[in-house]
Design a binder for these strands. Structure first.
Length: 260
DNA sequence: ATGCCGGGCGAAGCCCGA
């Protein structure tokens, strides 16, 4: 089973690019982020025409996440628990069942957090605390799950082109990285790092300043696996070539293959 | 270079992202 995460940076602006990738990559499940449209404005018909089911949590203008699956999506949970006042569409979770087993999959768009002296940074850290609390609950089920998404966190110095330039950024500050470690240390596996030791492989390149041409990237899109899913992990790759397409997102797809 | 692109909204120019 191939499970992918892809921050599309507006599904309306990117629908042809994203569909092209779906036809080539044929993921079983894809976690999309930054769809930037309301739930009922998502182009579900185009994905259904390719044989997919859609579970969508959108909002006007910003954020928005979706699960796209070849198999039916059940037990869908809209939103990250822990703060009823939070109306930002950043989390959707569902269960994908096959004859060979069921996998719980979440599509995550964690907050950016910049600038760090604004209320956006504490919101980011608190959001991660909520994700950690929710993950503790998911782990008690002792099932396969994959938390895929744009975490807006650079895990280590090996995941950024210039660590010094990013040391005070909300994506790389020590307090930020501690939150990701706290999450992973619950017992999760960073699928990409489990399969690839090579440093300086990235999932995001800014549109500006020739970042792509200079390979000034960062790795912030992650697939975090429960122990039961990690036991079945075969491979994990970054579809870097997609960044060179016409009208690309600034992120590229990251995907893993599980034995089932 | 805390906005150089690129998208949303909405119809010009500001807000936002990483």
């Amino acid at each position: 089973m191939k499970i992918a995460t892809f921050n599309v940076n507006s599904i309306k602006a990117r629908v042809e690019t994203v569909l092209t990738w779906f036809k080539q990559a044929t993921p079983d499940v894809a976690c999309l982020q930054e769809i930037k449209c309301e739930t009922n404005a998502f182009p579900a018909l185009e994905f259904e025409a390719l044989g997919y089911h859609c579970a969508i949590l959108g909002q006007k203008s910003y954020n928005g996440v979706a699960l796209i699956s070849k198999h039916k999506i059940e037990d869908v949970q809209n939103g990250l628990p822990g703060d009823n006042a939070d109306d930002q569409a950043r989390y959707i979770e569902g269960v994908v069942s096959t004859k060979k087993g069921a996998v719980r999959v979440a599509s995550i768009y964690a907050p950016n957090g910049n600038p760090v002296d604004s209320d956006k940074y504490p919101y980011k850290l608190k959001w991660m605390d909520r994700l950690i609390a929710h993950t503790k609950k998911l782990l008690t089920y002792e099932e396969m799950f994959v938390l895929g998404g744009d975490y807006n966190i650079i895990p280590t110095v090996d995941d950024v082109y210039d660590a010094k330039a990013w040391e005070n950024d909300a994506l790389f500050k020590l307090d930020t990285r501690r939150k990701l470690r706290e999450l992973v240390n619950l017992g999760l596996t960073d699928a990409f790092r489990a399969c690839n030791a090579t440093p300086h492989l990235y999932s995001f390149w800014d549109y500006q300043a020739g970042a792509w041409q200079k390979n000034n990237g960062i790795r912030i899109d992650h697939l975090l696996l429960s122990p039961q899913a990690a036991d079945r992990l075969k491979t994990c790759k970054i579809d870097k070539h997609v960044r060179a397409w016409e009208k690309p997102s600034d992120h590229v797809p990251v995907w893993c293959e599980l034995k089932l």
